[in-house]
Simulated scan of single mutants.
Amino acid sequence: MSASFETPLPLTLTLHGVRLEPLGLHHAPALRAAAEDGALWQLRVTSVPEPHEVDAYIHKAIAQRPTRLAFAVVDAASGALMGTTSYHDIVPAIGRLEIGYTWYGKRHQRTHVNTTCKLLLMTHAFETLGAALVGLRTDNFNHASQAAIERLGAKKDGVLRHHAVRRDGTVRDTVMYSITAGEWPEVKAHLRDKLARHGVR
């Protein structure tokens, strides 16, 4: 394991009214409702579970520890669940992890929620865990996700061709992005400025 990297353990992170807490089976009804907000599972370029698959989705996320740590994204004021996100493909030996399995109910998309979650997770990864690199990935046809990742300040590493099976049985190319520890201070300042410009302080 990298001498300076700590494997992430279940924890709760809070910022700007958004709380990330370890995803558990007690979140299943609210996560199901979030998926139904916009019928998100019908989008072929995402991995959002169908309503009847939510329990299995959570079971799988928990079973993937310690290489994945899944969070429920919660409105800190109301307690309403807005979506989910994860640390995944955690490789302690080289201080690398990725942020993904991220989706939000339609009403919470294009708000400050995603930027806040990324700021929380990357701050913890780089400044507490000692990560050398944080990766992000998305479907080659998920242009909205690619644009969102690029707005965060991540650099495009390349495309893994014929990489993963979509829900409809087709095989996707995966677009890979990353942010290094050296790039983090500038990215952090960018994310804070982005939130401030949208009135979130």
Score class of each variant (00 low, 15 high):
residue 105 G to F: 13
residue 106 K to W: 10
residue 107 R to G: 00
residue 107 R to P: 04
residue 108 H to T: 00
residue 108 H to D: 06
residue 110 R to A: 12
residue 111 T to F: 12
residue 111 T to V: 05
residue 112 H to S: 11
residue 112 H to F: 13
residue 114 N to K: 07
residue 116 T to D: 05
residue 121 L to N: 01
residue 122 M to I: 03
residue 122 M to G: 04
residue 122 M to S: 04
residue 124 H to Q: 07
residue 124 H to E: 10
residue 124 H to I: 01
residue 124 H to N: 08
residue 124 H to P: 05
residue 125 A to Q: 09
residue 125 A to R: 11
residue 126 F to E: 03
residue 126 F to Y: 11
residue 127 E to L: 08
residue 128 T to H: 15
residue 129 L to C: 12
residue 129 L to V: 01
residue 129 L to Y: 05
residue 130 G to M: 09
residue 131 A to Y: 12
residue 132 A to H: 15
residue 133 L to Y: 09
residue 134 V to K: 08
residue 135 G to L: 07
residue 135 G to M: 12
residue 138 T to A: 06
residue 138 T to N: 08
residue 139 D to K: 09
residue 139 D to W: 11
residue 139 D to E: 05
residue 139 D to Y: 08
residue 139 D to F: 08
residue 140 N to L: 02
residue 140 N to C: 11
residue 140 N to W: 15
residue 141 F to W: 11
residue 142 N to G: 02
residue 142 N to F: 02
residue 142 N to M: 04
residue 144 A to R: 15
residue 144 A to P: 05
residue 145 S to R: 07
residue 146 Q to R: 15
residue 148 A to Y: 14
residue 148 A to V: 09
residue 149 I to Y: 13
residue 149 I to Q: 07
residue 149 I to M: 10
residue 150 E to V: 08
residue 151 R to A: 10
residue 151 R to G: 02
residue 153 G to Y: 12
residue 153 G to K: 11
residue 153 G to I: 06
residue 153 G to P: 12
residue 153 G to A: 08
residue 154 A to E: 03
residue 154 A to H: 08
residue 155 K to F: 04
residue 155 K to T: 10
residue 155 K to A: 08
residue 156 K to E: 10
residue 158 G to P: 09
residue 159 V to S: 04
residue 160 L to V: 01
residue 160 L to D: 02
residue 160 L to C: 02
residue 161 R to E: 06
residue 161 R to P: 09
residue 161 R to Q: 09
residue 161 R to G: 01
residue 164 A to Y: 15
residue 164 A to G: 00
residue 166 R to Y: 07
residue 166 R to A: 01
residue 167 R to E: 06
residue 168 D to P: 12
residue 169 G to T: 06
residue 169 G to S: 09
residue 169 G to I: 10
residue 170 T to N: 07
residue 170 T to A: 13
residue 170 T to R: 15
residue 170 T to H: 13
residue 172 R to S: 05
residue 174 T to V: 04
residue 176 M to K: 05
residue 176 M to S: 03
residue 176 M to W: 11
residue 177 Y to G: 00
residue 177 Y to N: 00
residue 178 S to T: 01
residue 178 S to E: 05
residue 179 I to N: 06
residue 179 I to M: 12
residue 179 I to V: 15
residue 179 I to L: 14
residue 180 T to G: 06
residue 181 A to F: 04
residue 181 A to T: 06
residue 185 P to C: 05
residue 186 E to L: 13
